[in-house]
């Protein structure tokens, strides 16, 4: 594998977006890009990552390779990332290490890190990316992040309801409750403020607040978030990157009592 990002902060943002959700991951590298899937220790949140060749300045992968890493270690190396540096990832044919090369052409500076790979025996779950959903919402990632931060302070449980009035985020804590209603809107001057809802059925689902706080860490990857809900199935919270690919979080709901 030889894969070069023209801006090393892109890979840092990708890793930082899920390093607090899962501790280790297998990157599956092939000619169609880098893909990865990991499940958190409590088996409530599934992270699915896709970095297609379009995200790289140059991308080459001669044969499918699995690259297993501890995310805390990788994240430490990525503290060197800067937007003025490129980052090239190298993995040999019989991989036992990942080489990261940062290059700043202006500063005539390069940095090289090597990281030992780990053999991770992770089970892969079959996730249908075209999973049918009753409700699809596209909205501003900034707006979603603010709502999650504000409301999760009040309760461990966060409810999403979608009906004819729009989408309602609500919490009902021991000492306080809160509710935010958003209706579809189109802002032609600022399309990142658009909110669209397509719905075949109403939904009313609750999730544990702590996972939502992890999910919003990926909001640096995209201006928009796409939400997909169906009654009694995991919700999908997805951030799509400008150059293709992105990260999706499948979050199992709490049971309806």
């Amino acid at each position: 594998l030889e894969a070069k990002f023209d801006d090393s902060t892109i890979f840092k943002k990708i890793i930082d977006s899920f390093k607090d959700s899962v501790s280790q991951i297998n990157f599956m590298c092939s000619e169609s890009g880098i893909e990865a899937q990991a499940i958190d220790d409590s088996r409530v949140l599934l992270v699915s990552l896709s970095i297609p060749p379009s995200c790289f300045e140059t991308y080459r992968c001669d044969r499918p390779t699995t690259v297993g890493v501890y995310l805390s270690s990788l994240s430490k190396l990525l503290k060197s990332a800067s937007s003025s540096a490129t980052l090239t990832l190298y993995v040999e044919d019989q991989p036992d290490e990942l080489l990261l090369l940062f290059e700043e052409s202006k500063a005539s500076k390069s940095m090289e890190y090597k990281m030992k790979l780990v053999d991770i025996t992770a089970d892969m779950l079959e996730v249908d990316s075209d999973m049918k959903s009753d409700v699809s919402v596209e909205m501003s990632g900034v707006e979603f992040t603010k709502i999650v931060r504000d409301l999760t302070q009040l309760s461990d449980s966060f409810t999403v309801s979608v009906g004819k009035d729009g989408i309602v985020f609500s919490v009902d804590g021991e000492t306080a409750s809160g509710k935010v209603l958003l209706q579809p809107k189109e802002d032609l001057a600022n399309p990142e403020n658009n909110l669209s809802i397509s719905m075949t059925k109403t939904i009313d689902l609750s999730f544990a607040s702590k996972y939502l706080l992890d999910i919003i860490k990926a909001s640096t990857l995209s201006n928009m978030i796409s939400l997909k809900f169906s009654e009694e199935t995991p919700a999908l919270f997805e951030f799509k990157m400008e150059k293709g690919g992105g990260i999706g979080f499948y979050l199992a709901p709490k049971y309806d009592e």
């Binding site: 409530v44 599934l46 779950l125 544990a208 499948y250 709490k254």
Partner: peptide, 14 residues
């Protein structure tokens, strides 16, 4: 508080 479901209930092992 409502009990939490887990992801394995919904997706098959591959």
């Amino acid at each position: 508080d409502a009990p939490q479901s887990d992801i394995d209930q919904f997706f098959k092992d591959n």
